[in-house]
Amino acid sequence: MNDAAIDDVSLKEKYPPGDLAIWVFIYAEFLAFGIFFLAYAFARSYNVELFNASQLHLDKRAGALNTLILITGSYFVVRAVAAIRVNQSRACVNWLLAAIFSGGLFLIVKIFEFHGEYVQGYSLSSNLFYTFYFSMTVFHFMHVILGMVILTAVMFKARRGGYSAEDHRGVETGASYWHMVDMVWIILFPLVYVIH
């Protein structure tokens, strides 16, 4: 479908890709993270010096690397959906495996980052900045794990030939959740690591 066709309202699909239930869940997750983001931004406006000084200790390169990893993972998931839409189950499985691997890589980088901060003596109770930082990043970390679990379940079903060009709602459901996890990190990284 080209851009002109995409903009034609009559050709638009009635519901977003995947199960409708996952979209209720995704919107609820956006709301929860949105509250976190705004609480952080407004708390910072009352504690600018503390937040700016604490932010200097974060590993910005690790944060950026993790953004690149998650974006690439999202791209792999897009390719997995595109593959199953043309009945290429094997390619779909391979793209999903690549996405799961990128999720694992994200977790490894983040664990190293958490370890570095722990060694330097920072924890949830160090100050208000670190309370926000650890709360948001650990919360997001758990979402990456859940996303990997969902993609793994989808991958196993795809490997058994459970999806086809006609029926691939499960792949789209897992993909939508994974993109939500990616979007949250796209906001979280500049907000917490960069903007001052």
């Binding site: 699909e13 791209y75 993909a175 993109h179 796209i186």
Partner: peptide, 24 residues
Amino acid sequence: LIVSMLVKTQIVADYFMGLKRVRL
């Protein structure tokens, strides 16, 4: 930075999630 965050998230929503193909 805020504009770049907005652009990036909108690209993911529209083209990766596929919301560009769905009703407004």
